[in-house]
Measured scan of single mutants.
Amino acid sequence: MTTFKLIINGKTLKGEITIEAVDAAEAEKIFKQYANDNGIDGEWTYDDATKTDTVTE
């Protein structure tokens, strides 16, 4: 398992969460579901060097 981080730069929700996932694709799926569940819809970027997804509304 690898640690992945999501940075949220939303209009109403800001912060970050960290998860353990098998790979980047699994982490992205989990993060996008989390964002959807919390009403966050924005531009996504991924930095492989830091294993960090960022969503900005």
Rank of each mutant, 00 (worst) to 15 (best):
M1V: 06
M1F: 10
M1T: 11
M1A: 04
M1Q: 06
M1S: 07
T2C: 15
T2F: 14
T2V: 12
T2P: 08
T2D: 03
T2R: 13
T2N: 07
T2S: 09
T2M: 13
T3P: 02
T3A: 06
T3M: 12
T3S: 06
T3C: 15
T3Q: 10
T3W: 14
T3V: 12
F4P: 01
F4M: 00
F4I: 04
F4Q: 02
F4N: 01
F4H: 02
F4G: 02
F4R: 02
F4Y: 11
F4A: 01
K5N: 02
K5Q: 02
K5T: 12
K5M: 08
K5V: 10
K5Y: 12
K5G: 01
K5F: 13
L6R: 00
L6F: 15
L6W: 12
L6N: 00
I7Y: 07
I7V: 10
I7F: 05
I7M: 04
I7R: 03
I7S: 02
I8V: 06
I8D: 00
I8R: 00
I8L: 07
I8M: 03
I8C: 11
I8Q: 00
I8E: 00
N9D: 07
N9W: 13
N9H: 08
N9G: 03
G10H: 06
G10D: 02
G10R: 03
K11T: 10
K11R: 11
K11W: 13
K11S: 10
K11M: 12
K11N: 11
T12D: 08
T12P: 01
T12E: 07
T12S: 08
T12Q: 08
T12I: 11
T12A: 08
T12G: 08
L13D: 04
L13C: 15
L13W: 15
L13V: 10
L13A: 05
K14I: 11
K14Y: 13
K14V: 10
K14T: 08
K14D: 04
K14W: 13
G15Q: 13
G15H: 13
G15E: 09
G15F: 15
G15N: 07
G15R: 13
E16C: 15
E16R: 08
E16N: 05
E16V: 13
E16F: 14
E16W: 14
E16M: 13
I17F: 12
I17G: 00
I17M: 07
I17K: 01
I17H: 02
I17V: 07
T18E: 05
T18K: 04
T18P: 00
T18Q: 06
T18V: 11
T18S: 08
T18G: 01
T18N: 03
T18W: 13
T18A: 03
I19E: 00
I19T: 02
I19Q: 00
I19R: 01
I19W: 06
E20L: 14
E20H: 11
E20Q: 13
E20W: 15
E20N: 07
E20C: 15
E20P: 02
A21Q: 04
A21W: 14
A21S: 02
A21H: 04
A21V: 08
V22Q: 10
V22T: 10
V22W: 13
V22P: 08
V22I: 12
V22M: 12
V22R: 13
D23C: 12
D23A: 03
D23Q: 03
D23N: 12
D23T: 10
D23R: 02
D23L: 04
A24G: 05
A24C: 13
A24E: 05
A24Q: 11
A24R: 15
A24F: 14
A24V: 09
A24T: 03
A25G: 06
A25P: 02
A25F: 10
A25I: 10
A25W: 10
A25C: 15
E26M: 11
E26A: 12
E26Q: 11
E26N: 05
E26G: 04
A27D: 00
A27N: 01
A27R: 01
E28P: 02
E28M: 15
E28V: 11
E28H: 15
K29W: 12
K29Y: 06
K29P: 00
K29D: 02
K29N: 03
K29V: 06
K29R: 14
I30G: 01
I30N: 01
I30M: 07
I30F: 13
I30R: 04
I30S: 03
I30V: 08
I30E: 01
I30W: 14
F31S: 01
F31T: 00
F31L: 03
F31R: 00
F31H: 00
F31D: 00
K32P: 00
K32F: 04
K32D: 00
K32M: 08
K32V: 04
Q33Y: 05
Q33M: 11
Q33D: 03
Q33L: 09
Q33I: 08
Y34T: 00
Y34K: 01
Y34P: 01
Y34N: 00
Y34R: 01
Y34H: 02
A35Q: 03
A35F: 07
A35P: 00
A35V: 10
A35I: 12
N36R: 15
N36F: 15
N36A: 14
N36L: 15
N36S: 13
D37I: 10
D37C: 14
D37W: 08
D37F: 10
D37Q: 09
D37L: 09
D37V: 08
D37S: 09
N38T: 04
N38F: 13
N38M: 15
N38P: 02
N38Q: 10
N38W: 14
N38R: 12
N38L: 15
G39P: 03
G39F: 09
G39R: 05
G39K: 05
I40T: 01
I40R: 01
I40F: 09
I40V: 07
I40S: 03
I40E: 02
I40G: 01
D41N: 13
D41M: 13
D41Y: 14
D41V: 14
D41C: 15
G42T: 05
G42H: 03
G42N: 03
G42Q: 04
G42F: 10
G42W: 11
E43K: 09
E43W: 13
E43A: 09
E43R: 08
E43L: 10
E43M: 12
E43F: 12
W44N: 03
W44V: 02
W44I: 03
W44M: 02
W44R: 02
T45V: 10
T45Q: 07
T45A: 08
T45E: 10
T45L: 09
Y46V: 04
Y46M: 06
Y46P: 02
Y46S: 03
Y46D: 02
Y46A: 02
Y46Q: 01
D47K: 05
D47H: 07
D47F: 10
D47C: 14
D47Q: 08
D47W: 10
D47M: 10
D47R: 05
D47N: 09
D48K: 09
D48A: 13
D48L: 12
D48Y: 12
D48S: 11
D48N: 09
A49C: 14
A49T: 10
A49L: 12
A49G: 08
A49P: 06
A49K: 10
A49H: 07
A49S: 10
A49M: 11
A49W: 09
T50I: 06
T50A: 07
T50H: 06
K51D: 03
K51T: 04
K51S: 05
K51V: 03
K51C: 14
K51H: 11
T52D: 04
T52Q: 06
T52Y: 05
T52G: 04
D53E: 15
D53R: 15
D53N: 15
D53G: 15
D53S: 15
D53P: 08
T54C: 13
T54V: 08
T54Q: 06
T54K: 08
T54R: 06
T54G: 05
T54P: 04
T54D: 03
T54E: 05
V55I: 11
V55N: 06
V55Q: 05
V55A: 06
V55Y: 07
V55D: 05
V55T: 04
V55R: 05
T56W: 08
T56P: 05
T56C: 10
T56H: 07
T56V: 09
T56A: 07
E57F: 08
E57N: 06
E57Y: 06
E57A: 06
E57R: 02
E57G: 04
